[in-house]
Design a protein around this nucleic acid. Structure first.
Lengths: 209, 209
DNA sequence: CTGTTTTTGTGAAATAAGGTACAATATCGC
DNA sequence: GCGATATTGTACCTTATTTCACAAAAACAG
């Protein structure tokens, strides 16, 4: 049995690359090209595809449109996913204005903030006071939230999100949330990502001396 | 032999948690507490520490100050690391204003953008035209850059960074950079992170029916 | 039609990562 | 000082993930 979690993540990358290839006018692709574009080995690509029953033709490669259709099925990308954002500070704002989500079939439909000064409209996206969170999540059946609040209130806001019915949180605040197991939390810790990179850069320079 | 890449990443998390504990006035910590704070198992913490020769006392736990000192040594956090940012759009701006980097001993000392309208000062950080990149990197010995430019120019800017002498790139643009092997690139793809989370949320709801 | 080339698909091997369990040892209460 | 208790350190086991290597199939050239 093949690993699971990591394959799913790679499928997203393949999908992004395949759409780029498609835009460039290609209709077929080889595992080698796709691997290069996605940053993995050719064998990895083939094995991932074979795991999901995606097949190509020996010597002919894979048909991009076919791959995309099946990957979309696997990733259940059959509609635009609506998410909310909590914490309309600098980072929250940047994410609100980020074009990359819509391109991938996801949409931030509302933001929430405790600071009255931040309410109103940010571009296309309305910013509501925290009071309205519960009703909004319930009324629109929102399941996923992006959390960009200061660390000090992140746990608290996280709990409010869960009690409102949120089932997944993309957490940018640098703390580990203690929430019920059923809630899925993904972490993006910007400082740690940068620190990690710096470590390897220092490391590699040390080696070359 | 223990894995390596993943331990280093966890050390950064431990470090962050330990400093929180320290701020709260604690001087010692148990593997269980630290694991919980960092989101890993207690055994994992102990194993990681033992790998680096960090030892505690049976029944007494680990001394926080001692751990921090040794972790700082391992991660080579002995000075403030200066990095630059390229692409002063919404996301770039948010990162410029992000407080989390300084807290962890890293600093964005300058930004660069091709758009003349974006030049000037963003808070504390000056935004220079792209022309000045080469000189700045050379003069200040900058080794790491944060890349927040549009996908269309990312490869191009990446190459310029490398030719200027940059050795590590934290890339927020949704493309895989083709750069010399010696250059270390870390990827943060916001859309894919969100997509991945959404996948698991959908998945878990499916299960519970 | 035959030999050559290319690329897939996959079994086997290698590597990495994480979990379990428990002996060893320190601390504490009395 | 002694028994009870808590916690580390680690050997062993299990699972996950990746790479390697090559046979099988398809395409092509002549």
């Amino acid at each position: 049995m093949i690993g699971y979690r990591s394959v799913i993540l790679r499928l997203s990358h393949y999908r992004r690359c395949l759409r780029q290839f498609e835009e460039l006018g290609y209709t077929r692709v080889f595992s080698r090209n796709l691997g290069q574009a996605a940053g993995v080995s050719a064998a990895q690509v083939r094995k991932d595809f074979s795991f999901f029953g995606l097949s190509g033709r020996r010597k002919g490669g894979y048909i991009i449109a076919e791959l995309l259709e099946k990957i979309n099925q696997i990733l259940k990308k059959d509609r635009i996913e609506k998410v909310i954002l909590v914490g309309a500070g600098h980072l929250g704002n940047a994410l609100i204005k980020y074009k990359g989500f819509e391109k991938e079939g996801m949409q931030i439909v509302a933001a929430f903030d405790a600071d009255p000064a931040k309410l109103g409209k940010k571009g296309e996206v309305p910013v509501y006071p925290m009071d309205e969170l519960f009703r909004f999540v319930r009324d629109y059946g929102i399941r996923v939230a992006i959390l960009t609040v200061p660390a000090a209130v992140a746990q608290d806001v996280g709990e409010r999100l869960v009690s409102a019915g949120i089932r997944g949180i993309l957490n940018f605040s640098p703390i580990t949330l203690r929430l019920p197991e059923r809630v899925i939390v993904s972490y993006i810790n910007l400082a740690i990502e940068l620190e990690h990179l710096l470590y390897y850069v220092n490391e590699s320079q040390r080696e070359n001396r």
